[in-house]
Design a protein around this nucleic acid. Sequence first.
DNA 1: AAGTGCGACAACCGCCAGTCT
DNA 2: GAGACTGGCGGTTGTCGCACT
Length: 442
Amino acid sequence: MSSMTNMGDGRKVPKSRRSPSSVEEPTTEGEGHFKKGPWTSIEDAILVDYVTKHGEGNWNAVQRNSGLARCGKSCRLRWANHLRPDLKKGAFTEEEERRIIELHAKMGNKWARMAAELPGRTDNEIKNYWNTRIKRMQRSGLPIYPPDICLRVMHGNQESQNVGRLTDGVNQHDDLSQTDTLNIPELDFKHVKIPEDPSIFDMPENSMFEQSSDSSYGYNMFPIMHPAKRLRESAEIMQYAPVYEEDYMSDEITNQFHGDPLNGNTCCSSSSSMPLSGGMKLELPSLQYLETQQGIWDTPASPLPSLESVDTLSSGLLEPIMYQSTKHFQVQETPDEAVKCKPEWDESGEPYSPLAQSSASVLTMCSPDGPQWVETIQDHNIKHELGTEFPTYCSGKDEKNMNQIHVTRPDALLDLAWFENSVVNCDGDKSFRKDAFNTFFG
DNA sequence: AAGTGCGACAACCGCCAGTCT
DNA sequence: GAGACTGGCGGTTGTCGCACT
């Protein structure tokens, strides 16, 4: 083998990955000069032999007693990620992938906990898989969490709240396992009230429902859409990819947008009607995206934050989005325009984050009372429409102006449609409403 | 054939909490 | 009680192979 080192499990590791200090023959280093880089099969054998005889743990002793030129940390990592006999090799199965998505929706970036629920898989594997997946989904403009998983996780949380217990991963796992038998109750928004108790927002950090501590950027169910020059369409993408049929973009829908959707001059709702300081860009998913033309959702010439500039997919999702959206945007109405939103500035004089703007792009509720969205929402009910129309939210106070929902993103539209189907007509399950609302509005 | 982008993967790093001395 | 040590965890980096243009 010229350029690869056999890692003992059949995998190859690039030779160039090795650090200068990592040479084939273990060095007789002094304290603090441990070998780095890929493990050789000899080192693996030594480590396996030692752990077999002495068991796991006390990893620094491994280094001291076995002659391995590796630090204890490195030994532990190697053992845990590659040498453990119970490790499952190979690609994730579909079931495992689904579990990962569910678990991440529930736990956030708790890779170790997730690994504990996936026998034979390591946190590193899961982490790598998720990071790769997240990039792919973001690039293709697809929801990170499929709607059914959103609901399932949401329902799991609701169950756990109902029984007044703090769920551990195992229990939730059981809840979530019942993917096919779960009946999703429906929700009537008519009487929904935003709970005042903020404790209901307690969610694991980074999870689907996390409350972000730093809202400057964040990933969410409606990820920032990148034009994908080339998209390798995985089965997953095809599974979750929204399909924007021509009929779907009916006049009713396009009328929700201000401007000519055909020339890319769309001015819709709040976010795209103003410059986006964060450079948020509204685009069609790449499955529909044509590089040669501006998407109808696109705001031309607005730079897109690079993937690297975005907090590594760990920020909270809808909750902070909606919170900031409603908190930081003043809703104004004119007879001709449904809404125009302009950013406010916080007390410190700092402009609100781009997330707030992007969040406003997800959903803008018309409100004559401006920021007092909570009060307004209480009186909202859902107008159920058939056919290509998507749900409209109207207030009993002023239906003429309120009878619109402004959505700037096709994926948001889809999810609204999904949500509408999922939550309407719920008969009195307040806790579920709370969760549903929690999910939808943060 | 060359260039480019992406996925997969391994391994390192830094931080932190628990334990030990 | 304080500091050192240890192990665990999450984030990040870097490289390769492959697919595609």
